[in-house]
Design a protein around this nucleic acid. Structure first.
Lengths: 138, 138
DNA sequence: CAGCATCCAATTCGATACTG
DNA sequence: CAGTATCGAATTGGATGCTG
């Protein structure tokens, strides 16, 4: 993913379609961007502000990767300090729906997962910073 | 993800549930493992052989991470060279279904994505090894 | 505003040797 | 069989200065 950069990796022929998809979607930000774009189009800076925590670089890279895969459309308006709008393509709509379902699952079972995790950490030796409410780190 | 190791990272309080989920599922192998376990239980070495490309280390780490989150159950049979069986938990079943849907989407739209990618690479300058059928690299 | 390039830190991953 | 421990290589991600 993330083509046209010093960090070119690509590799196209993934055996498993899901892996193939996750290589695209699995990036730290792709899903956030798709969610943000679901419903309304956005401009670069709008996304940058809305997503919080994303760097200019990663936003640009994520947008390009999604654009390259035909998941989002980029429209440039020749205004003076150029304006660029991003929008999901029809293709991406179906995917966005699936992702929404996944998000629902995650929301509905968050407590189950958290509970399981806590139990696991208790039964086995709880690792260093792996308590339930560990604060941010990076 | 992947607790209890030198490479501890964790960080629990993800703002977005989907991100939170992907941090767990987004690993290179989690989805493969879940798919492999869908339907039948498996033993460590069976998984290792079935998944192809996965290393002992990553399989062990992935299994542990999924177990910790309550997505799979590990059963040890006190035979002589110990036998261990892995199976999806009821909790994981729902997720597995969603992942299957995602896999379907990926399969059904693989050509669209590939086409979009090719078009993009043609219109813009095609990056080094980013042709359509580039062989493996990593 | 939008976005690319460069430098650098943090993580992930793979191969492999070793153990109960 | 079923892992764990260690090491080095590859990738990802963040900060930021620069340009049209």
């Amino acid at each position: 993913m993330y083509p046209g950069d010093t960090e070119v990796t690509d590799q196209v022929g993934a055996a498993c379609p899901i892996r193939d998809l996750l290589d695209r979607i699995g990036g730290r930000w792709s899903v956030r961007v798709i969610e943000e774009l679901a419903g309304r189009t956005r401009r670069f800076t709008e996304l940058e502000r809305a997503i919080e925590g994303i760097s200019r670089r990663m936003l640009a890279r994520t947008l390009r990767a999604l654009e390259r895969d035909g998941l989002l459309a980029r429209t440039v308006y020749p205004t003076v300090p150029a304006t660029v709008e991003y929008a999901l393509t029809p293709l991406a709509l179906g995917l966005a729906a699936l992702l929404a379902a996944l998000a629902d699952w995650a929301r509905n079972h968050r407590s189950d997962v958290l509970a399981a995790r806590e139990r696991y950490d208790t039964e086995h030796g709880a690792p260093a910073g792996a308590s339930t409410g560990a604060p941010e780190s990076r």
